[in-house]
Nucleic acid binder design. Structure first.
Length: 428
RNA sequence: GGAGAGGUGGCCGAGUGGCUUAAGGCGGCGGUUUGCUAAACCGUUGUACGGUCAAAAGCUGUACCCAGGGUUCGAAUCCCUGCCUCUCCGCCA
């Protein structure tokens, strides 16, 4: 959420930044709404001041056993007026809050202005895509052929966009999660968190999934419980409505969780394979940072995520998302895109690292306090470190051999009991 | 799922309709005293949204005693609903 006073004082600037994102103009009636609301606050405030004063006078009269009926009668009328004004002010305020909650974050000045992913800016590349001397297969063929991946039975027991893993496939997924967690906790200074995979709606408001993106989420029936779309949601909300001591910043968490997304509106996109599933696993990185350090923290978080792919020998590139391609709460986002040989070869998103500045903190009441001075809003950052399911398929595709087996990257072997290669196997 | 007890400032804790602008204590901050430390003493203390101001400071208004409604001239206090915590019982990985 943007700061109300900031929007009021920088209306044209805000309009421009939102236009850069390609967001519709949501500030249409902001000025009049804000003006009307403040006028009502002043009127109601002065009436309440009178009410408080007269109530004291009534108390004094009663104590002295004198007649207060005239004042009481007046206050009955004033009370009705206050109820009326409060109602109007509340309605205006709700409209204003609703407007503010619909407005995405303002892009940082360093973000390339553009309309879509076409305008994203490549920052750097790591690794050389492998040259195959045979036609590389897509993972949705490789996996089932190896007997470690099964979409058909997943469709039977649940539905489309789910998968079952067997044997070395299940173990590879588990090994990847452990490998990522160990790397971030041992070498990058993150503290591991295991949060609930179900959260309430207040939590989803805090990180910005609600109210705009309810359709992307799974909601549990007859409750206020929702499945998390990413660990960013529960982990960022750990400090909701709390004030952190400045010396403790930056706080760095990493969390392995399952993630659940309805993928409404993506019918027809990535229908084959593991790229776009309703349920997938992800190791997430979350930071709480001082405002003056948050962009340095974004850089290091992006490097921390990249380390995972480098250790696994997976070629990737880093792109800065353009203003038109960024998520709702982000002020700046880097995507990590891993190279996949299937479909003629190309880079696919495997991590997204964002600095939300104070956008989430303002919604969620995440503050910090310096030794001297008032509480300020912290900056929050989140990034995948990285998506486990997509790493799984990247390993299959990048490390496949002509005979249909898959070589396990060195760094991962200790997590697989020394296994060097996945050979075709029977699932049963 | 059943029964009961609770939810008050950063923390502890008083407070059953108006002398509460939330007592008292702890902690924090500032100061006095002191060879240093400790102690003692004095002062101070949160958040949000407004008004005033060029702006900041300051001054000032309102709201906030889990949340949302209600009763009343007046609610931390009374009523209703919800959420959360704790204790006991039942069920359970």
């Amino acid at each position: 959420m943007l700061d109300l006073a900031f929007v009021r004082e920088n209306l044209e600037f805000v309009r421009q930044k939102l236009a850069d994102r390609g967001a519709p103009d949501l500030l249409g009636d902001f000025e009049s709404l804000d003006r009307e609301r403040r006028k009502l606050l002043v009127e109601a405030g002065s009436l309440k001041a009178r009410k408080n004063k007269v109530s004291d006078e009534i108390a004094t009269l009663k104590k002295q056993k004198q007649d207060a009926s005239a004042l009481i009668a007046e206050m009955k009328r004033v009370g009705a007026e206050i109820t009326d004004l409060d109602g109007k002010a509340k309605a205006q305020d709700e409209k204003l809050q609703e407007t503010l909650k619909q407005i995405p974050n303002l892009p940082h000045e360093s973000v390339p202005v553009g309309r879509s992913a076409e305008d994203n800016q490549e920052i750097r590349r790591w690794g050389e895509p492998r040259k195959f001397d045979f036609e590389p297969k897509a993972h949705w063929n490789l996996g089932p052929e190896l007997g470690i991946l099964d979409f058909d039975r997943a469709a039977k027991i649940t539905g489309a966009r789910f998968a079952v893993y067997y044997g070395a496939g299940a173990r590879l997924e588990r090994a990847l999660a452990n490998f990522m967690l160990d790397l971030h906790t041992r070498e990058h200074g993150y503290t591991e968190v295991l949060p609930p995979f179900i959260v309430n709606s207040t939590t989803l408001y805090g990180t910005g999934q609600l109210p705009k993106f309810a359709a992307d989420l799974f909601k549990l029936e007859n409750s206020d419980y929702w499945l998390i779309p990413t660990a960013e949601v529960p982990v960022t909300n750990l400090y909701r409505d709390e004030t952190i001591e400045a010396e403790k910043l930056p706080i760095k968490y990493c969390a392995w969780t399952a993630c659940f997304r309805s993928e409404a509106g993506s019918y027809g996109k990535d229908t084959r394979g593991l790229i776009r599933q309703h349920q997938f696993q992800k190791v997430e990185l979350v930071k709480f940072a001082l405002p003056e350090q948050s962009y340095d923290e974004l850089e290091s978080m992006t490097r921390d995520a990249g380390r995972v792919l480098e250790e696994l020998g997976l070629p990737y590139r880093v792109v800065a998302l353009s203003t038109g391609d960024m998520g709702f709460g982000a002020a700046k986002t880097y995507d990590l895109e891993v190279w996949l040989p299937s479909n003629g070869g190309g880079y696919r998103e495997i991590s997204s690292c964002s600095n939300c500045e104070a956008f989430q903190a303002r919604r969620a009441g995440i503050r910090f306090r310096r030794a001297q001075g008032k509480a300020e809003f912290a900056h929050t950052l989140n990034g995948s470190g990285v998506a486990v399911g997509r790493t799984w398929l990247a390993i299959l595709e990048n490390y496949q051999q002509a005979d249909g087996s898959v070589v396990i990257p060195e760094a991962l072997r200790p997590y697989l009991g020394g296994m060097e290669r996945i050979e075709p196997q029977s699932p049963t």
